[in-house]
Design a protein around this nucleic acid. Structure first.
Lengths: 224, 224
DNA sequence: ACCTGAACACCGTTCAAGT
DNA sequence: ACCTGAACACCGTTCAAGT
């Protein structure tokens, strides 16, 4: 029984397997749990072993981001108007990012460091330039749109899975009680909306509205 | 000379002075330089001294965020349409955040933990609800708008001040050469926009377009 | 090529103690 | 009330060495 778990049966390390394990760990316990030493332990290996496969910890994080970008299944263009094509691309990014709310922030500022990220960026910038954006405008809008997808996922009010259910219930009740104890005279609107900062009535509505917002914004800043 | 710097002449600690010093440190060297031990050193005090004023490190970060929100000078309403009033408020947030690109991310998820943050949120949610947004829609849009201001500031292509000029010049040239060596067949649009991922032609244009985007997006998702 | 082992300079935090 | 001192369990990383 226990013999099956001895170090001698360990799988060989690789950039990909380490990155995949790191992403899984981030999904389970959050990004701050992803440390060199912890990853070494999970791979039944010495911390220094990881430095053979990655230059430093930042390169490991690049590896996680790379895996996230690789999960984006870019849709083939089907001849819709540019704003509808853009929405399909953003929806594909969203679909890839949603399962990884605790790791998603790594995609910000790391887009150009992986093949998949570059392909995605080329696609978005291409749509924007074809729509009449200048290169400078397209670069800004493209960067902002990708960050916004990450923002939507990261800030979606959710039951975080890094703690057990009762702990989170306590935390939730405490936070909500705190918000709802605010002065009704000073914060009437905040009180009316209080519950929606902690709880999302419909995830699909939330993300549909998010995409609507981004497309409206993009259309709105175009100067054709 | 050296006598003037002896520990005995040290100013008394306080929540506010520690938070202000922490923000200044983050501005100079980035958030990862803000450690309990470093702050202790800068205040000529033992690390443990900080635990009298703050519960833990997260509370110190709350303190920094609090200072950032306190810098927002909310404009008085002047009877414009709701979207123009919203733009004035977002512009005020932007003005407060722009000087602190390396610390700005702390404002995300910490809005409700300080008086100034609550006042800002009440104002934004108030505008949205008055414009016809439901409480749930207003909560989502309000959260997203604030995060977006932070995103604009954090992702603005800039010469980061955590390293000296030549180091950054080298880094800049290397990055740009890397981007511009991409296959023109595979990444034509990315190449056309390459320089604008690293360099901002006009900060004012950049932020004007950012605010335009956010207002267009908000107007676009309203269902009156 | 791939991994180990010992060491270094850092972290945040607890606990008991000083004034 | 406000701060110190020693200690603990962590970090990332360098350098030399093993197979």
């Amino acid at each position: 029984m226990a013999a099956r778990v001895t170090p001698s049966t360990r799988e060989p390390l690789s950039r990909e397997s380490i990155a995949a394990g790191a992403l899984a760990l981030a999904d389970r316990e959050g990004l701050e749990a992803v440390t060199i030493r912890r990853l070494a332990q999970e791979n039944s290996v010495t911390p220094m072993a990881l430095y053979w496969h990655f230059k430093d910890k930042d390169a490991v994080l690049d590896g996680i981001a790379e895996r996230l970008f690789a999960d984006v299944e870019l849709p083939e263009p089907i001849g819709l108007s540019w704003d509808h094509e853009l929405r399909r691309v953003l929806a594909a990014v969203l679909a890839a990012v949603r399962p990884h709310p605790l790791a998603a922030e790594l995609m910000v500022m790391r887009t150009m460091r992986s093949e998949s990220g570059l392909v995605l960026a080329e696609r978005v910038i291409g749509i924007l330039i074809a729509a009449g954006f200048s290169p400078a405008e397209a670069a800004q809008a493209g960067s902002f749109l990708l960050c916004s997808i990450v923002t939507l996922v990261v800030t979606e009010p959710r039951k975080d899975n890094t703690v057990d259910d009762e702990t989170w219930d306590d935390h939730y009740r405490a936070k909500r009680a705190e918000l709802e104890s605010l002065s009704p005279k000073k914060y009437p609107n905040l009180l009316a909306a209080a519950e929606f900062f902690m709880y999302c009535p419909s995830e699909d509505d939330y993300y549909d509205r998010g995409l609507d917002f981004l497309i409206s914004g993009t259309v709105g800043v175009r100067t054709p």
